[in-house]
Structure formats: C-alpha cells, structure tokens
C-alpha cells in the first residue's frame, strides 16, 4: 500500500525536476559557455585580423618593399641628413633567432638533465628540491630577470669579456634561465608518463641505469623532450622586457656574442611609444609584430607535429 502511494509522487517529482532542468539551468548553462567560447574565438580572430592588416600596411599602403624589409639590415626609420629613411629588419630577425636558439642550446641540456636527475637518479628527494625551485623561477617576473641581468650579469660580462657587457651573450643567458623551468617541467612530465615497465624491462636484460636512460628512456621520450624545448623557444622568442634590458639595442647585426644587438620584440617596445600611429615608422613595427605572430604559429605547428609523434599516451 505504502509503496503504491509513494510511487507516483516520486515520478512526478522527478519529471518536474527533469523538465525544470531542461528548460532552465540546462539552457542557461549552455548559453553561458557558448558565449565564453565565442568571445574567445572573436577576440583571437580580431587580433589576428588587425595584426595582419596593420602588418601589411607598410607594404601595401606605404609601398615598402617586403624583400628589402626582410633582407636588409639597414634600419634608419628617421631620414638622417641626406638619405631616405630605410626599414631593413634583418638585424632584428637575426637577433631574435640568434638569442632564441642560443638560449635553447643552454637550456635544453640543463633542463632535460635536471628532469632526468629528478625522475631517474634521485626520484625520492630530487623532485622535492627541484619542484619549489622551478615554481620560484616561473613566478619571478621578467622585469626582475632583466634587472638582475642588468646589474649583475652585464657588469660581469663586461669585466670578463670586455666590450659593453650588453649583447647577445647577456640576452641568451637571461633567456636561458627564464625558459629553464618550462623545459624542465615539461621534460619531467614526459619522463614521468613513460610506462614504468620500460625501466624494469631494460634492467632485467642487464642494462645499467645509464644505458636504460640513454638508450630507452630518452628515445622513448624524444617527442615530448623536443616539445619542451620548442615551448621554451617560443617563450624566448616572444620575451621582450628582460631581453631589452641586457641586449644593448643596437640596430645592426652584431659581429660577436659580446656586441650589442636587438630583437623584434625589443625594437617594438622601444619604438612604439614615440612613433605616431598610422605613420610608416609605426606601421613597420606592426610588420615586425606580424613576423612574431607567424613565428608563434610556426611554433604551434611544430608542437602539434611533435605531439602526434608521441609513442605513448
């Protein structure tokens, strides 16, 4: 009797609940998240369109030759004396690539080495020591890196190598330290995600720990390790402030690591304040920014490609 009585109540209560859910929070929730997603897509698209349009302005609107822009190292945005102003960005393209690649050359072995140490050599305490260090390094704002570079590293380089101390060498060291946590943490995650059985299987065949690391684990983790380095490079390529403080900001291609140089980002930050919006001087900065955008797309494609090559997951 009792159950017969309670049954319909339950049913109607739950139908009501389902109806209500369907009509109210269900839809509202969907609208909210769809709006969020749309906003992000619109914002991204707007930035890309704006940047592309502004970036092409100097070529289309002002008639600057793209070839000259990309291949000349002659940067004289303000007509000096007799000559026409010239806008060759090669020095900065070179500077950006040089400082990024050099930083990666330092940070990749250090970061991957630290990751191997943490996961393979001292898994019990290595992580406890390194994790806080990495988090700390990530948390330090880039202006602080730049400031330390400026007040400690640059004078040190000046006294050891001569010259001004400002230059690619200072830039690459500061950037290497800045991207080290990115490389280390992603490399660590990659090594952690390898099947644990690999280590035992290799040891059971008689491999030493180092043989296991070098012949099994590193090759198995290679796509992930490369992703770590590429992500670090993407960060280095886009970093402006810290680099600007130590690189010296010379507008010509340096002859050595200890000579001042400049990068795409540093030239933009240095010049965006005092050029008039709409002028050619200002438009070429947008063209530099467009190169940065294309490079970050390239980094993304590279990372996509690498993650498709992952052996486990």
């Amino acid at each position: 009797m009792k159950s017969e009585h309670s049954m319909p109540t339950v049913t109607s209560a739950s139908t009501r609940l389902i109806k209500k859910q369907k009509h109210n929070p269900e839809r509202k929730g969907r609208y909210i998240v769809t709006t969020c997603a749309l906003l992000i897509i619109i914002a991204t698209a707007a930035i890309m369109i704006f940047l592309t349009q502004k970036g092409l302005q100097s070529f289309i609107g002002n008639g600057l030759s793209p070839l000259e822009f990309l291949t000349s190292a002659n940067w004289h945005p303000i007509s000096s004396g007799n000559g026409e102003p010239s806008y060759g960005a090669l020095s900065f393209i070179f500077g950006s690539f040089a400082v990024t690649i050099l930083a990666a050359i330092i940070a990749a072995p250090l970061g991957i080495g630290a990751a191997i140490f943490m996961t393979e050599i001292a898994p019990s305490w290595g992580k406890k020591v390194f994790q806080p260090i990495i988090e700390l390094l990530v948390g330090i704002p880039s202006v602080v890196y730049g400031f330390i570079g400026l007040s400690v590293l640059v004078p040190f380089l000046r006294s050891s190598f001569g010259g001004l101390g400002f230059g690619l060498l200072a830039g690459m060291i500061v950037l290497a330290i800045m991207i080290l946590p990115t490389v280390t943490s992603i490399a660590t995650d990659t090594l952690h995600s390898l099947p644990k059985g690999l280590r035992d299987a290799s040891a059971a065949i008689g491999a030493t720990r180092w043989q296991t690391i070098s012949r099994i684990l590193i090759p198995a983790a290679m796509p992930g390790l490369l992703t770590a380095v590429v992500l670090g490079m993407a960060r280095a390529f886009g970093e402006a402030l810290a680099v600007q403080m130590v690189i010296g900001n010379a507008t010509s291609i340096p002859n050595s690591l200890t000579e001042p140089a400049a990068t795409l980002t540093t030239i933009i930050t240095l010049n965006m304040g005092h050029t008039t919006f709409g002028s050619l001087e200002n438009n070429v900065l947008w063209s530099l920014a467009l190169i940065l955008l294309l490079m970050s797309l390239l980094f993304i494609i590279l990372i996509r490609f690498l993650s498709s090559r992952r052996k486990y997951e």
Binding site: S202, I205, A207, I216, Y312
Partner: peptide
C-alpha cells in the same frame, strides 16, 4: 648484476616492448 641478468632473463605480466623496432628490441640485450 649485469652478468646475472644476462644469464637469468625475465618476462613481465605486461608485455613491455621498447618503443623501437622489432629488430632493435631483440638486439638490445
């Protein structure tokens, strides 16, 4: 242990081929 494990091989519950070629897996030892 290197010599011992050369003499005393082991096979695990989960097959754990190395992410290498078939040939390289066998040639590893």
């Amino acid at each position: 242990l290197v010599e011992l494990r050369k003499q005393v091989g082991m096979v695990f519950q989960q097959a754990t081929p190395f992410p290498k070629s078939i040939y390289e897996n066998v040639a590893y030892g």
